[in-house]
Structure formats: structure tokens, C-alpha cells
Simulated scan of single mutants.
Amino acid sequence: MKGMLVGVHKVNVKLADGSVVTYYYAWRGKGAPRISSKPGTKAFTQEYIRLTRDRQKKVVAGTIGSLIDDYRKTAGYQKLAASTRRDYERQFATIRLEFETFPIESIEERGSRRIFIVWRDTMKDAPRSADMHIALLARLFSWAKGNELILRNPLEEVERLHEGTRRDIIWSDDQLSVLIEKAAPHIRNVALIALWTMQRQADILEMPTLAFDGGRVSIKQGKTGARVRIVAAPDILPVLRKAKEAEQQRVLVNSFGQNWTSSGFRASWRKEMARLDIKGVTFHDLRGTAITYAYAHLDRSHDEKIKLISEISGHSAEDAESIIRKHYLAGQEVIDAIGRGTKKA
């Protein structure tokens, strides 16, 4: 793996006891940071990417490197959620290692698709990550094609390596009952808000108490930028009102009464799921579960239900309908589980 890293500087140092150690630096020259990870490992590559990501360097015009720089300056890229941009920056750093000087004109040439696919397959041991990298490269080429910088996107309709998808996974009624009835209050509250608003984890953890006006909750979705107003279900009113009365900055807080951090919540969630022995589902799967519940509960036509669910949840209509088709028959069980747990808590 270290052979892929252009610019890594290797230095052999003789210690006082006569032994020789080898140090690796992100680049040659004064001020170059040392790479502490073991050479040849994934950690070594990741550390190299982190250390060199913000280093000023000259990018050759007319290359994939310059294409990346131009794309990063666009309004569309700048308005992406900060977390999404961080993920993209890491992936772009990996792409640059391989294709920094790859000519833009060669992107269109016959055979280029195979070059990119072969590169993707070098990461096949981590198929989901490999798919994310090739998808971002395809997005870059799609933008370039839309702006007439290239005439052909060689990465249209690339098959995924990672076959798994969580779109078809929802919580069972037994799992929901355990979660709502037995989870620690600070974890249960987050789960309830997620179930009754269908919002992403980051959006509900950062939800300010001011977002609740006594009857509705106003949310700006970090990923899409969309603004939605959701009627506060009776089941989450106690959580919202308590936050108001306590004059909390955010609706949801941890066991110490402090605002959640994303890493802190993930760690607490993992520990609680282990304690409750809940397996096979994730926090993210609560959104699909909530969609199933909402579809079964709403007294509207099929098309109206899908439209409303999509507007609130942030899913595309196609994804929402896919979840419904897979799990509609489980809808009443989900409703009953949520209701039972809420009444007992």
C-alpha cells in the first residue's frame, strides 16, 4: 500500500544504542510531519491523506486534480452538509493519489472506464468504501459533463460491489418494545423523536429547543437543506415540553444533561443496544420503521401518503415506496409496539 503514496520520505536514523530505526514523513523537506502508523497498512495511508490534504501544491491544469478543485468551488458543493463535505474530502484525497495528473481529455477515451473500475477493485476488500469512491468519481464526471468539460461520463451505471442495503430493514415489534420500555431515558428520548419525526440522527441531536413552538417542530435538514414543520405527536410532547421548561439549548441531551456529540451518542447507543441485546438493526433503521408506521397510520390515498412521507423524511418517493412495499404488512405490529411502549414508559 505504501508504494501508492507519492512523495513519502523515508529516513533511517541510528540511535544511541547503535540500532537503526526508519521514520516516514509525509513529504521531503523542513517541517514535513512524521507518519506514526505502520507502513503498508490502511492506517498508514489514511494518516498520509490526512497530513497532506491541506498542503499547498501546484495542480496541473487539464487534469482530474484540477477538475476536483473546480468542482469543490461550485455553489452546489459548498452547500452540502459539512459532514458530507468531510467524507468527500477524504475520498477526493484517495482519488488524487491515483488520478491527480490524469488528463481530462483521456476521461472520454475508450478504455478509460476499465481503468477506473480496475482501480475501484483494488479496494474490493472494503466494498462499501470502494463503491463510495467510484460513486464520487462518477459524480465528478457527471458535473464535468453537465458543464461541457467532457462529452462522455465513462462511469454511468457502474454496478456496486457492496450488495447490502438497509433500505429493507426495519425494527421488529419485539425490538421496539424493548427499546421503548427498557432503554435508558436519554437514549429512549432520542429514539422516540426519531420515530415520530422520521429525521436523521444528526438533525434530531442538534434540534434546538426553540424549534418547538408548543404544537409543531420546525427542522432544517442538514443533508438536503429542506425545511419541514411537523406536528408534534402526543408521544413526544413530554420530551419537548420538559426541554422547554428546563430551558435547554437542545431538545435532546445526554445522561449528564449536556448536548450530545455525534461520537458520544454513537458510543452510548452501541453500549445500550448491547445491554438490551438488540441485534441486526441500527439507529438509521428507525427511519424506515417510522415510514412503515406512518403509511399504515395515515388516512390518505397511497400517492398522498408517499408524497407526505417523502417531504417529511427526506427519502425520495422511490425509496419510501420501496420500504412500504417491503414492510407494509408489518405496519400494524409496529404501531402497536410503539403504542405499548409509550404507554408503559
Rank of each mutant, 00 (worst) to 15 (best):
F44G: 02
F44Q: 11
F44H: 06
F44C: 07
T45K: 01
Q46W: 06
Q46T: 11
Q46P: 00
Q46D: 15
Q46Y: 08
Q46G: 02
Q46R: 09
Q46M: 09
E47Y: 12
E47T: 00
E47I: 01
E47H: 13
Y48W: 15
Y48V: 06
Y48I: 15
Y48E: 10
R50G: 10
R50C: 05
R50I: 04
R50V: 14
L51T: 01
L51A: 06
L51H: 00
T52W: 02
T52A: 03
T52F: 01
T52G: 12
T52R: 10
R53G: 00
R53Y: 08
R53W: 14
R53E: 14
R53M: 07
R53Q: 13
R53I: 01
R53D: 05
R53K: 15
R53P: 09
R53A: 13
D54T: 05
D54P: 08
D54V: 01
D54F: 12
D54K: 13
D54Y: 00
D54L: 04
R55W: 04
R55Q: 11
R55M: 08
R55N: 13
Q56F: 11
Q56Y: 07
Q56V: 03
Q56I: 13
Q56H: 06
Q56E: 14
Q56K: 09
K57M: 11
K57S: 01
K57T: 04
K57D: 10
K57I: 02
K57H: 05
K58W: 11
K58E: 10
V59I: 14
V59N: 00
V59D: 02
V60E: 11
V60N: 14
A61D: 15
A61V: 10
A61S: 14
A61Y: 08
A61H: 14
G62P: 06
G62I: 01
G62V: 03
G62L: 12
T63K: 08
T63N: 08
T63A: 09
T63W: 03
I64P: 04
I64C: 03
I64N: 11
I64G: 06
I64F: 05
I64K: 02
G65N: 05
G65T: 07
G65M: 03
G65V: 01
G65P: 04
S66C: 00
S66K: 13
S66D: 04
S66V: 03
L67A: 10
L67V: 07
L67K: 04
L67H: 00
I68A: 00
I68K: 00
I68E: 06
I68L: 06
I68W: 03
D69N: 14
D69A: 10
D69R: 03
D70F: 13
D70E: 15
D70C: 08
D70Q: 15
D70I: 10
D70S: 15
Y71A: 07
Y71L: 08
Y71C: 07
R72C: 15
R72F: 01
R72T: 14
R72Q: 14
R72L: 04
K73M: 12
K73E: 12
K73F: 04
K73L: 14
T74S: 11
T74C: 09
T74H: 05
T74Q: 07
T74L: 03
T74I: 07
A75R: 09
A75M: 01
A75G: 05
A75T: 08
A75C: 02
A75K: 12
G76S: 08
G76W: 01
G76H: 01
G76D: 02
G76Q: 03
G76P: 12
Y77W: 07
Y77M: 09
Y77E: 02
Y77Q: 03
Q78A: 14
Q78K: 13
Q78E: 07
Q78D: 05
